[in-house]
Amino acid sequence: MDAIIKTTTRLLVPLIMVFGFYVSLHGHISPGGGFPGGVILASAFLLLVIAFTEKEVEKHFSEIKIGDLKSVASIALLGIVLLEVIVRPDILHLQTPLTLWSGGVTIFLNLFGAIVVASGLVIIVYSLVKEEWKSKKSKW
């Protein structure tokens, strides 16, 4: 792609990722949640693979590390659910309702759920795009 699209992508990708984390972290007090936040995070990667070539993406990206991130976030999700049984009576006294620090452990569930969704969708997008890069007839 040309220089305008590359420069705009460099400016936009951090902002899209910040918005994705905002949507997932505010999921318990405003519209949003783990799933839409995770898909917004993955759409930043979508913009990246459209704008840049194969070598430029693979210089900063490793599919195995994304798979490891997905596994670690899934185990963390399970651990939070098990931990919530123990800490549920204590954590509600420490929180104030209708602020960011409220709703028990929901904020951690949204955060790690967003990471699981984002890494899964990044792997799907990357495997689709890798096939396109391989085929000679492709216009990308």
Partner: peptide, 9 residues
């Protein structure tokens, strides 16, 4: 909530 999911997905 559904509108965000509709746009994004």
């Amino acid at each position: 909530d559904i509108a965000i999911t509709q746009i994004v997905v």
